[in-house]
Amino acid sequence: MNTTKHSTKLNRREILFSLGAGSMALVTLTMLPGLARADKTAADAEIKKILGGKTAQDGRVTLDVPQIAENGNTVQLEVAVDSPMTEKDYVKAVHVFADGNPVPNVASFHFTPASGKAVAATRMRLAKTQNVIALAEMSDGSIYSTQAAVKVTIGGCGG
């Protein structure tokens, strides 16, 4: 589920799949940027709460999500934060948001120095094509963030 695995797993058939999907249904979604951002204000409000006046810095956080999700019901998500995870310097929490979902909150993961490494994986629902945002709160109070776009196909033929 790490980034490397993800990229090596993208074999020729999947590239074809992406091309195919892109040339078909996804076009209609990407042509409606306003729709994909409909709930972005809700996500922004939640993110502001986490930031508490601070500014999020880029880097240190890796978000592993598929570029194209086969089905929005079950989208794999892994977050990893670069940190020594010692008593003095560790990741306290990672908060995940989806800016196009009716409720933007997805999950918060709480780590401790006993975590060894700040990596967590779960599966989430994405209502449509949108951005997934991760904010990492460090033990020194700094915040790092990253985001990734996930295209959601209207998948699953047959009832």
Partner: peptide, 14 residues
């Protein structure tokens, strides 16, 4: 002692 915890919202899959 807590080693890890997570808060889940409605977006977490079945």
């Amino acid at each position: 002692k807590e080693v890890f915890s997570a808060d889940w919202h409605g977006a977490i899959s079945a």
